[in-house]
Design a protein around this nucleic acid. Sequence first.
DNA 1: GGATTAGTTCGACGAACGTCGTAGTTCGAT
DNA 2: ATCGAACTACGACGTTCGTCGAACTAATCC
Lengths: 110, 110
Amino acid sequence: MGTMSGTVPLSPLVHPERGEMTVEAVLRALADPVRLAIVRQLAATGSEIACGALDVPVTKSTLTHHLSILRQAGVVTGRQDGTTRFNSLRRNDLDALFPGLLDGVLAAPR
Amino acid sequence: MGTMSGTVPLSPLVHPERGEMTVEAVLRALADPVRLAIVRQLAATGSEIACGALDVPVTKSTLTHHLSILRQAGVVTGRQDGTTRFNSLRRNDLDALFPGLLDGVLAAPR
DNA sequence: GGATTAGTTCGACGAACGTCGTAGTTCGAT
DNA sequence: ATCGAACTACGACGTTCGTCGAACTAATCC
């Protein structure tokens, strides 16, 4: 069962399209300290960051879980390159659907 | 025990000041369908709405709970008048702290 | 004094969430 | 072909969350 070779391209890495995104999912995704930290780091960089380069106080499996939630909500995108996955903010889509939301969150004092 | 007369002014009704509000609490408060519906109704009205006049699919005790969370996050204010409590959005404070956040949320397609 | 209306408070319950460790998969280098 | 690095997938666990009903308080009206 476990040992079989078919060479699947790692993971489908499914993201919602613009039309599939909901405010509630986005708000829920942002309403967690770890995920908010991830979004802040991605916003500060302006480009992509590998999972391992993200500064978060959780284990890797938990990080994976949080990134999955952010991805499913449409907040971030993942690009695979070798064994490392590069994550970036979907600024365009977020700004188009919920203009001001992301900037408002990032403008927060703390 | 229950029967004693001191006539307390109903409830302290404690709200955070501008400086006490955090993005995370606001996001968490907004990340629920019922509470989002409440905020939308308050925004649509532009002024205050009594608890009983809010259109939500939950019991009164649950409504109280949701309003309490919104109040503690600094999203809404409560004004007592007789036995009815009037709720209103803290637009000024929200816009000052997180410019664009509320508008972005309200601009959401669904 | 009741009776009524408007909200709140207090458990209680199940569902969802965040966290972890372990095991697994894929890729690249040796 | 073997090894290590980079993540992902799967259970398991404790905690928090949303929900309700029942009991309570406060103001208003008869």
